[in-house]
């Protein structure tokens, strides 16, 4: 689905008069690959280059060196530009600054209008997209009357109305409250599971990454770690070095191991910890398998 090789991106720094005064390397030699249908989380703190990376996937930014391929299309070729933007939709951080229309349904229709979808088909897509994110009953409402989480779900609907293969979400939850955050992540998960859309979630909330298929950790423009959530979070010391959060339960397991208990290092849910400490629960068939995110 996505293939990045030896990607380097330099920003041009300008002085007060607007003259180029040197460059800042935001991405420094990143290689990575994403298979279709995966749920990917990209972790990293501000300035780690994760947002710059995201904007390359939608051809909003172009490589200084190296290549970015989206579904077999090279982002450096100008003729591919609109096809790439349609195939890899993007949801941004600020819910207010990406809704264009004054009515929910019209905003969802904006993308399809831009790519010349016939009227009848637009209506069909708008309805389906809004239903997919659970916002259909709000279709006639003004976006200003919605909560942050609802606005972000409208933005997601606006992207899927263009029928992309991949959605890139650039810190979609950073400005939301805990309820809004859960709504958005749930909607993204559902699209991934039910429609097979590849999701690339850029975030600094580790709890949103726990259920991902794969995590990439960015630091100082480089890919610092990659692996499954268990592989990543079990490296408690390294995550601390990178100033990133680890689930408290994993931290606790880490402490207990230091205290001499022989339990696995890759515990991610409280049920797993309880099982490790007290033996498998008999009366609780569901316990342990599906983790608690809160």
């Amino acid at each position: 689905m996505i293939k990045i090789s030896k990607l380097i991106h330099d920003y041009i720094k300008r002085d007060d008069e607007g003259n180029a005064a040197g460059t800042v390397r935001a991405i420094d030699g990143v290689d990575l690959q994403v298979e279709p249908g995966m749920f990917i989380a990209v972790l990293g703190h501000n300035g780690s280059g994760k947002s710059t990376l995201a904007k390359h996937l939608n051809a909003l930014l172009f490589p200084t060196e190296g290549e970015v391929w989206v579904d077999g299309l090279d982002t450096r070729e100008e003729k591919n530009l609109w096809e790439i933007r349609r195939e890899a939709g993007m949801v941004f951080q600020n819910p207010d600054n990406q809704i264009i229309a004054q009515v929910v349904e019209e905003d969802v229709g904006f993308g399809p209008e831009n790519i010349g979808v016939p009227t009848q088909e637009i209506w069909k897509r708008v309805e389906e997209s809004l239903k997919a994110v659970g916002m259909y009953e709000y279709r006639k409402k003004s976006p200003n009357r919605l909560s942050g989480g609802q606005k972000q779900r409208v933005s997601i609907a606006g992207v899927i109305a263009m029928e992309p293969k991949c959605i890139i979400m650039d810190e979609p939850t950073a400005m939301l409250d805990p309820n809004g955050r859960k709504e958005v992540i749930k909607a993204a998960m559902k699209l991934n599971r039910e429609k097979g859309i590849t999701v690339i979630l850029i975030t600094h909330y580790m709890e949103e990454a726990i259920n991902a298929d794969k995590i990439f950790v960015m630091d100082k423009g480089k890919l610092a770690m990659q692996g499954t959530p268990k592989e990543i979070f079990s490296q408690v010391e390294k995550m601390k070095e990178l100033n990133l959060d680890v689930p408290e339960v994993t931290l606790l397991a880490h402490e207990l191991r230091k205290g001499g208990l022989d339990i696995p290092a890759d515990i991610l849910t409280k049920e797993e910890l309880a099982d490790a400490l007290l033996g498998k629960a008999q009366s609780d068939p569901a316990g342990g398998s599906n983790g608690d995110q809160s």
Partner: peptide
Amino acid sequence: LGLSAPQVTYIMTLLKERGL
């Protein structure tokens, strides 16, 4: 209320429920 206690509280509560 749509709020949550700290994560450790949940862990300890579960352990207690499981008999520890």
